[in-house]
């Protein structure tokens, strides 16, 4: 079965989650190094800002893809979903920080003006603001404490996905092929979830031995 051939041996799984954090942060570190050593082209700040934004989108897509990958392909990566979600948050936060500190040079008035006047910035800020409660409640304690409410709260990720897609699509003069692909993936993942009620997919996931254990471990 595909799921087994792709699965990582059990005793390495905790380490593999930490490895995902490390590997996930490599692009940010690498581009920061390139920028700081003047190897990021003519407009290094913008390039760094865009790169952090694109990686935010990539991790968001991976986060949203965990459930459909299990449902449709039998790949169980639930164990990595928290790390992927948090990487999305870290990249969104770095993207915003670069915009605020390096791009706008901490001109708060200009930033506020951007946020209230420009829909594309508004969507981005909205997505980042909604990511904050999800990141704060991503620990096991919150999952236990919030119970059913936790699941409801974390459905915010679909609204975040929609805001992120709008932010990304509206940020350029015309959509590039890359933007069509990423925005299309986000739309597909949101549609998949709205088509497939969450309760049903959870039941189905628990029906499988491995999936069931992963859900249990992240919820206990």
């Amino acid at each position: 079965m595909t799921a087994f051939s792709l699965a990582i041996p059990k005793r390495w799984q905790p380490a593999s989650v930490w490895l995902l954090y490390v590997v996930g942060l490599v692009p940010a570190a690498w581009y920061f190094y390139l920028g700081a050593t003047d190897q990021l082209g003519a407009d290094p700040v913008k390039t760094f800002e865009l790169c952090l934004g694109i990686w935010t989108i990539r991790f968001l897509i991976l986060t949203l893809a965990v459930t459909p990958a299990r449902d449709l392909l039998g790949w169980n990566y639930l164990r990595y979903r928290r790390a992927l979600g948090l990487l999305t948050f870290y990249y969104a936060l770095m993207h915003f920080t670069v915009y605020m500190v390096l791009d706008q040079a901490l001109d708060i008035a200009a930033v506020i003006d951007d946020v209230v006047k420009r829909p594309f910035i508004m969507f981005g800020m909205g997505a980042l603001a909604m990511l904050v409660p999800l990141a704060i409640t991503s620990n096991n304690f919150s999952i236990r404490r919030l119970g059913k409410n936790w699941i409801w709260l974390h459905r915010l990720v679909y609204i975040i996905g929609a805001c992120a897609a709008l932010h990304f699509a509206l940020s350029t003069k015309i959509l590039s092929l890359e933007q069509y692909i990423y925005v299309g993936l986000i739309i597909a993942l949101i549609l998949y979830r709205s088509y497939k009620p969450i309760g049903r997919s959870r039941k189905k996931g628990q029906g499988r031995a491995r999936g069931g254990r992963a859900v249990a471990s992240s919820a206990s």
Partner: peptide
């Protein structure tokens, strides 16, 4: 506007 090539990664002046 951001003036290209005027400053590096840090202290980009508008």
């Amino acid at each position: 506007e951001r003036r290209i090539g005027e400053s590096g990664f840090f202290g980009a002046s508008r």
